[in-house]
Amino acid sequence: MRLFIGLWFWFMVYIGNAQSTVMHALTFTHIYGKNTFALDSVCYPVQHTDSISFSHLSYYISNIELVYKNKTVWKEENSYHLIDVENIYTQAFHIYTPQSLVYDHLVLYIGIDSTTNVSGAMGGDLDPTKGMYWTWQSGFINLKLEGQYKKSGFKNQEFQYHIGGYQNEFNTYRKISLKTAAKKDMDIWVDIEKLFSNTDLSVQHHIMSPGKEAVLVSEKFASMFKLK
């Protein structure tokens, strides 16, 4: 009998929780300036004289928060999402918040925080088989972008940006704060062209380790993200 009452209690709590939760869809749409962003075969003009194409784009979104008047009112637990342009299922996911939550900003981070970087092997989107963990030196790759640029001085005209680094002055983990009305679903637009402002790809065609160059790229992350 006691067991039954106990189970009934937990069931009611469960129902109660289910009713007071709101499911929001977060969708990431990738663009290149005024064009939609697509991998392979699609070339985008660069300054009238050259063109760029992409073969890979993936990055981490983590530690999602809702903020009201500069105070965090909700935080996603275990908040790590790998977004991979090749896999459409990674470009939208749900978050679950309490009902009638008041907030004015959606806060998210590009990359993986330093504590997680030193916490050993992890699963899910953080699993090292996902190709977002350096092997020769510990640390997550926060953003991986690869493709071809005609004037890249490298073989096959290729360029590769593996942007990561979590320590001190080489930290590339970046906060994005987006003003929002309290609405159900959020469409986030990500403009890849912003990553290349003031960058000469013919010189800077490879960034493959933590350092000053990676930090400069990471400082452009914030300008890429807009809430529609």
């Binding site: 970087n117 030193v118 916490s119 050993g120 092997a121 090292p128 088989t129 190709g131 963990y133 092997t135 020769w136 030196q137 510990s138 640390g139």
Partner: peptide, 28 residues
């Protein structure tokens, strides 16, 4: 000191072209 955690240590020799030259997703 390139590796910050024992769990991640084995990744290095597994992936290095002059050691085991393999990729962890392929090992799996």
């Amino acid at each position: 000191g390139a590796i910050n955690h024992l769990d991640m240590q084995a990744l290095a020799p597994m992936s290095h072209p002059d050691e085991m030259g393999e990729k962890i997703d392929h090992v799996v």
